[in-house]
Design a protein around this nucleic acid. Structure first.
Lengths: 361, 361
DNA sequence: TTGTACGCGTTATCAC
DNA sequence: GTGATAACGCGTACAA
């Protein structure tokens, strides 16, 4: 017998002495419609031949690639991988697989990857946009392919959007800093033009400051790839200010927290007296100085929710529904970097603290 | 005209008034063999219909999925994503795409994902093994599909293996600690039975200790998911030892470094007098205490090299070659955590220091 | 230079 | 229950 390296169902059928159709039925989970004897014959043929299904061919017929595309702006960002992890688990539950693409925050790469995902006929796309994927999506993707935006919104795109409740997050952060007695704020973000979530956070910060005249606040947008002197200058001025009101630095995301913590360390600034807090919880935040207070995003939930959005739209009814916006609340994790009285033990576990009714703050 | 949502080359051909073949040639990069007038007609037909190629169908014929599978043991490990990033860039250069699967260090998931990758007819697999992928590979994958192992070796598998030069890495670390005046060592690893690289590192540590009788050393293998008291007990005993010889803790990977740094911080141990060093460079290592000395793995190189191994084996000659083992040297990044004289300025930049001829140490 | 015809591995639609 | 047969979208000998 000439065992071909990759046998097809046809060869299995011949080996078992049955028809292609029966083998297909056996494989497709309709085994109860086959006679027991045939089932065993097919089963033995499959194992003896070492048959392996070809999902490409399956996708050709029914348009069922069982593939979801995920476009990630920065794969090395722990936030991205955490969401990816959640999405992957959800996919598994639905029998789907993830085709992951990293755009490195490059609009050109994003476009190419979008084209690639469309070419593989993914059944849905999770997009953490780097640029504006709208045009590429309209150009390459089947209009019926459901799309869900992650963290970053895009103008005039018929897509669900899943992300952190940015307004609530800023409120939580502000309420915490306020309760700790800080009255001066430096809000540091990456350039807000590149992502809607950054805009939303900045806008809320400004709203908070406007609503609380007793606070003095300033904001800074800085490109971390090429920070120049902007960050250092601003931080130096903020830290050296003769204003007696206690000041805190709020970082818009994990990358910013890293950069700011780095500078503060080099400048020899003690955390706590100078407050530091960041959005995004990271492995090391508990390790630096007295621990850095963070607002953890519900990353696994975001990933799972994104997949659910897509799966929902697989059904005809789901397809009709208007785009949804799903904002999930973050969790504040207080640590020493926002405690002004350095007397308290640094190892206290604050994680169980809750922050009720922050909306009314 | 009834614009079908996903036009085929046949429809394009009809629209342009030419044959399927010509369109296929146009798409396949053989445009110079077509008359200019035909080229323009095809081009306009493609854009007006919004034609998008179906790579599933293309793959069906020639077995060209243009897909590489990558199996990652832990996607949330920064080491994994860094390698992934390197691999992705290399794929791009070869016109390949990566189908990424995370196994969460679960052998069952690994098996399922392997089956999935085989079903999609990936042209090669990069495997960062969680369990032993050998049996699943033999069962599901085409024997001709090239496989490259990442970081972790697997018994009796005809695959290239790419990873850190573990022996050299340990030598580098040991030489550094020796030069800094430490003479007691605690080597902390995750369970060595789960990964060959862990075994290699441990073995080298023991070899180093055996070769240097003036050192006193001990080793610990601990499962970080369920550390119990083992880690805390051992660390406490090491730190509290009445032995006057200066001691250093060497961590086998980034996860261990994190866990150990966490404990040391909670115990209020000052880094430097008690040395700390870890394999794997992480974002935050410069931030903790006086900075943590690390041995950075050449992650991007590992990823790119893995892809190159696969691409090489795409050719008939490459397929014949015996399995290769590619060990890449890491880079030592000295920081304050291995400086015993705490007088030196903590902000000194050590990154440009080189460590020549470590092999001869 | 261009077109015809077939095969890739699978599922769906019939008919028996 | 079971089996022919026709798609699915594309590449490619082969013929013209």
């Amino acid at each position: 017998m000439t065992r071909s390296p990759t046998p097809t169902i046809l060869e299995v059928a011949r080996e078992a002495g049955v028809s292609k159709t029966s083998v297909s039925r056996y494989l497709g989970g309709e085994r109860d419609r086959l006679s027991p004897s045939m089932q065993t014959r097919i089963a033995t043929a499959i194992t003896s031949l070492g048959y392996r299904p070809n999902w490409m061919a399956r996708g050709l017929k029914g348009g069922q690639s069982r593939l979801l595309g995920m476009l990630v702006a920065d794969i090395r960002n722990p936030f991205s991988t955490a969401v990816l992890h959640g999405a992957e688990q959800a996919c598994r539950a639905h029998g789907l697989s993830l085709l992951v693409c990293n755009t490195d925050n490059d609009a050109v790469l994003e476009r190419r990857h979008l084209e690639m995902l469309a070419a593989y006929r993914v059944e849905g796309m999770i997009i953490n946009a780097a640029g504006d994927p709208g045009p590429a999506l309209r150009r390459f993707a089947d209009p019926r392919t459901p799309v869900v935006l992650l963290d970053r919104q895009v103008s005039d795109l018929d897509a669900d959007i899943v992300g952190l409740d940015n307004a609530l997050a800023i409120d939580q952060a502000f309420a915490h800093l306020h309760a700790q007695g800080y009255r001066r704020l430096l809000y540091v973000s990456e350039p807000v033009t590149e992502a809607s979530s950054r805009q939303a956070r900045l806008a809320r910060v400004e709203a908070c400051l406007a609503r609380h005249p007793e606070w003095r606040g300033e904001t800074l947008g800085v490109a971390l790839e090429a920070p120049g002197d902007a960050l250092a200058t601003k931080l130096r001025r903020f830290v050296d200010s003769r204003d007696p009101a206690p000041g805190a630095i709020l970082c818009a995301n994990g990358q910013v927290t890293l950069a700011v913590a780095q500078w503060l360390r080099e400048a020899g600034v003690t955390l706590g007296p100078v407050g530091l807090m960041g959005i995004d919880e990271l492995d090391w935040c508990a390790l630096v100085g007295p621990g850095i207070t963070t607002l953890a995003q519900p990353t696994a939930t975001l990933g799972a929710s994104a997949v659910d959005c897509l799966v929902t739209r697989f059904s005809p009814e789901g397809r009709q529904r208007p785009p949804r916006r799903l904002d999930y609340a973050g969790t504040l994790i207080p640590r020493g970097s926002t405690r002004r009285d350095s007397a308290a033990a640094p190892t206290t576990d604050f994680r169980s603290l809750s922050c009720p009714s922050l909306r009314t703050f």
